[in-house]
Amino acid sequence: MLAKRIIPCLDVAGGRVVKGTSFVQLRDSGDPVELAHLYYQEGADEVVMLDITATAEERHTVTDIVENISENVFVPLAVGGGIRSIDDVRRLLLSGADKVCINTAALLNPTLVSKSADKFGSQSIVVAIDAKRIGRAKQAQWEVYICAGQRATGTEATAWAKRAVELGAGEILLTSIDADGHRAGYDIELTRAVSETVTVPVIASGGAGSMEDLRRALVSGKADAVIAASIFHYGICSILEAKEYLAKRGVAIRI
């Protein structure tokens, strides 16, 4: 049976993993290469790295980091942040990334998704969607935000997810802006709405605060994979503990 995936996420700025100040006390270092390797050894099914500053001069730092991670991490590596062109996609894939996550540029320039999928295959193109709940209607809806959650687009999230798949996305990385950073659980309704709309795998992101949150996103939210950052970075649980917790409760997991 296909296992649900548990994916740690490394937010990188200036060549260091950020998110969480007590981080450094819990782990030896905020070095993305060391952390990716540590998570790999703990049983991560995949590793996601997001370049959250994504300035031009840091681009090369990120390429170097990707090269270094891929030398010792033998699970898939997805990389995102500031990808705007086919050249950006190519450079990351050649550096050792298996997938790239395209967010803002996908919405502003949908042909980037179709061209990248044609050139490199859908399996390497992840469209990342940041969504925020709108209105209080009985039928919940979510609006897509771009530019790191700063800009509303007026686009409805499930419709955009469907369109992204038609364009060639092989996977959707779905982040709830409302839930992100609160450690109070994923937006289950959003996750389920998108999972039931698209025919490709959906990775739920934003809000994990406990192992039970992971289980709910996978079972009630019907996600194929979950991303978590804080709970692993802060040592609330290790990846292995989370996987054992889920497996014990009947979730298909690779231990």
Binding site: M1, L2, A3, K4, R5, D45, S122, Q123, G170, E171, T199, V200, P201, D224, A225, R254
Partner: peptide, 10 residues
């Protein structure tokens, strides 16, 4: 089925 078949399987 979800296609691609993506992830860990036995």
């Amino acid at each position: 089925l979800k296609v691609p078949h993506m992830g860990w399987n036995q």
